[in-house]
Nucleic acid binder design. Sequence first.
DNA 1: CGACTATTATGACCGCTGTCATAGTCGGCT
DNA 2: AGCCGACTATGACAGCGGTCATAATAGTCG
Lengths: 201, 201
Amino acid sequence: MAANETSGRGPRERMVFSAAQLIRREGVAATGMREVAAHAGAPRGSLQHYFPGGKEQLVNEAVGWAGRYAANRVARFLSALPEPTPSGLFAEMVRQWTDEYRTTGFAGGCPVAAATVDCAESTDSTREAAAAALGHWTGAVARALAGMGVPEDRATALATLMISTLEGAIIIARAERNVRALTTAARELGPLLDAAVSKAD
Amino acid sequence: MAANETSGRGPRERMVFSAAQLIRREGVAATGMREVAAHAGAPRGSLQHYFPGGKEQLVNEAVGWAGRYAANRVARFLSALPEPTPSGLFAEMVRQWTDEYRTTGFAGGCPVAAATVDCAESTDSTREAAAAALGHWTGAVARALAGMGVPEDRATALATLMISTLEGAIIIARAERNVRALTTAARELGPLLDAAVSKAD
DNA sequence: CGACTATTATGACCGCTGTCATAGTCGGCT
DNA sequence: AGCCGACTATGACAGCGGTCATAATAGTCG
């Protein structure tokens, strides 16, 4: 089991990553299993081997991966900020998207949002995976806010607000092929976020 | 052309409405043409008659219908508020969703968001339809804000922020099957919105 | 070497989708 | 009546989807 770490990561992880990549571009329904295998450079037969639960399992793992990725990014944003502020963190979260859209185009959105839109009503396990991913992400943001002096009870509320606004702005930006909604969100929400820091330092 | 208004609206309009209804539940890709006809109680043959542009045309019209509907709702919310305030308008916009989710369940999201997620990269005309729908909606909200004393330049920015936050909160609420994100958005964003009203009255 | 497990490789199947082709029906207008 | 347009009704088709069945191939351990 340790001999397969040859090309970067194992083929299984590559397929999960590719699934997330494709889902965020085309949505869940339009993403085929064969397409995922091809994108990952993995053999088609590996699909039923690694994901006996079929497409549902693959999608759910892709959503989980996305949630962990987003949560990890929060930590990295934090350590990159000279003086951590709520508005600074939100600006970094937004900047990740504006950078991508400006450099590589508006091809992809958030895979968790895509999974929710496509599967919330039809596939309950995927809906739960999306909720869990959002929970991880929100938790990471809330902990970061708390570390900046935001009272515990408002930290989760503001984290939810930040992620709500970011997700919505991503959708608008993609529809308009314009980063405007994202930059507007960062600019307008920043002062509100910083105002929540308790003046005890 | 006037003889077909028998059962409520004509079959054509019913199909557009049904398409929007189904798209917001299952997404664009998972919504079949036959399913739309069945849901509208319309004959299957009418599809190619009224929508020679195929599914793409039907989806685009459904998105356009949703945009007009959302814009009209803004006007109705306005006239229903005793004293119009930005936070009051946003609270009404949010309440439309919390009411639906509490009474009929978390089955559906915003059809414009669904169309964007599913078609932004694959079908450019649908992406444009979504952008136009968001534009109508944002314009209606911005005009409402301007009428409350919000300076013109900030009105569109705040309207974009409101719709971004609402769209994101809808997704989160649907994933969690919990209205929390929506109520949080209304509560946290309200003061920020009201603070933008110029103190000239 | 033999055996056993992990992985890969295909091919087939069935269901569903959007679309087209072709008739059929209805209603009114001349 | 005759015609014509709008609408309805089916059926077929080609394509693609996920999934299963069945082998073939490593790769490793006894």
